[in-house]
Design a protein around this nucleic acid. Sequence first.
RNA 1: UGAUUUUGUAAGAAUGUGUUCGUUCAUGUGAAAUAUCAUGAAAGGAAAGUCCGGACACCGUAUGGCAGAAUUCCGCGUGAAAGCGCGGGCAUGUGAUCCAUAUAUCACAUGACGGAACAGUGCAACAGAAAGAUACCGCCGUUAGGUAAGGGUGAAAUGGUGAAGUAAGAGCUCACCGGCGAAUUAGCAAUAAUACGCGCAAGGCAAACCCAAUUCGGUGCAAGACGAAAUAGGAAGUUGAGUAGCCAGCUCAAUAACUUCGGGUUCGUCGCACUUCGAACGAGGAAUUUUGCAAAACCUUGCAAGAUUAGAUAAAUGAACACAUCAUCAUUGAAUGACACAGAAUCCGGCUUACUACAAAGUCAUCCU
RNA 2: GCUUGUGUAGUUCAAUGGAUAGAAUGCUAGCCUCCGAAGUUGGUGAUUCGGGUUCGACUCCCGACACGAGUG
Length: 114
Amino acid sequence: MFRLFKSQRLKKSSDFAKFRSKNTRSIYCEIFVLKSLERAMLGMSAPRIGIITSRKIGHAVARNRIRRVVRETFRLNVKCFKQFHDYLFIALSGIDIKSNKEITNAILNATKTL
RNA sequence: UGAUUUUGUAAGAAUGUGUUCGUUCAUGUGAAAUAUCAUGAAAGGAAAGUCCGGACACCGUAUGGCAGAAUUCCGCGUGAAAGCGCGGGCAUGUGAUCCAUAUAUCACAUGACGGAACAGUGCAACAGAAAGAUACCGCCGUUAGGUAAGGGUGAAAUGGUGAAGUAAGAGCUCACCGGCGAAUUAGCAAUAAUACGCGCAAGGCAAACCCAAUUCGGUGCAAGACGAAAUAGGAAGUUGAGUAGCCAGCUCAAUAACUUCGGGUUCGUCGCACUUCGAACGAGGAAUUUUGCAAAACCUUGCAAGAUUAGAUAAAUGAACACAUCAUCAUUGAAUGACACAGAAUCCGGCUUACUACAAAGUCAUCCU
RNA sequence: GCUUGUGUAGUUCAAUGGAUAGAAUGCUAGCCUCCGAAGUUGGUGAUUCGGGUUCGACUCCCGACACGAGUG
């Protein structure tokens, strides 16, 4: 019931390019930027997420940790995310200092306003 | 006791156990596993840097020359190679012995350690008369000139000390030391020792060009193979192209070929996860490793039994809770944390760098006797 | 992933192995002006880091670090 399928993750570069071109709703925290984009009402209804962790955040271990935390929060709290929407999570520098709980709480607060 | 350096460690256990929720791959069941199923496996010593060397794949041909790149004391061992290890020689530095100093001897450390020549070129700021040949002061003589002993400069001044000698001086001559040469002896060799010869007109830098010897075809899994999808031969330029910097040779091509710009597509499978046979169960083999036995002074070897073999692709290997253990804080009850460096990306062998703990050795500092 | 390049003042660039590493711009303090701007005179400030070769290193060599570029 809380599974995370491969189809729920953004993989193609065209999916990421849509965020650049079209108008998106976005919210900025000190740690990250979360963007949302409405999708055509076709196919599956579940929300999808893409994660960007650039090299500025830190070494590969720190980047892996953030990706895992974001995926875990997305998996356990799918109901907070709207259906037929794509989400893009962009991590910013300074996120590697925060603990796992702080990151999850910050994401859940962000989804309320989106 | 502390700091630091070097070497080593089948060490770096996701701290352990349990529960719950998940991720990737393989196999099975199944019509379908991208249906919420079952079983099994799932990150390091450096996975890192990409500095070397290979395997492997492609380049229609990889042949010769030039250019270019890399390596460089000697011997032995190991290895596919790069490299690594052991021993020896030489040079430099430090310390000790000796001690007026040098030489010498011993110990330790470091060394990209071929060549300065009957090959050539280049460089040496400032200072200094002079930096590869010269004469400022001085000395002798006073017409020309002779002279490198003394002065001072410099990183470096044409070997050092003493005697003899002289107008004054000088390897001009002699003794000792140093240097160079070829010979003999020792050594597998690098090289060393010996006596002999040369008065010693040429020193330093080759991580300056260069010379000698040896080695090297290029590109890299985004290599490459197959399938699917898409599409319009649109514009400009060149006359050759064959992936090597140039030339030659060889091969192909001729009205087609190539380059640039613009447009379209931009997904999947294999390569690729120890390997072979097999439809599968399974069997054989390989490597690593644990235990036991036997042989052996040790290194190690053999036999038997068991275990293990990562394979992702916007890129898996995770999260939460409970108990135990440990650490820190606070002060005797409960809070925080699971610890450094750090994340496989075709595979393997090295090198380099980062870092925790333990062990050993060295150096330095402080205290005590 | 693979290949490859570059590091000099806050910024943009110079410097043949040899003075105190130079110039523009910026910043800053005076002068000028009624006050600013412009002008003018000073000051400030750097060889990414660690070793080696050399008498001597921004330069040559080695290792690290940082920042780029190319490649289907």
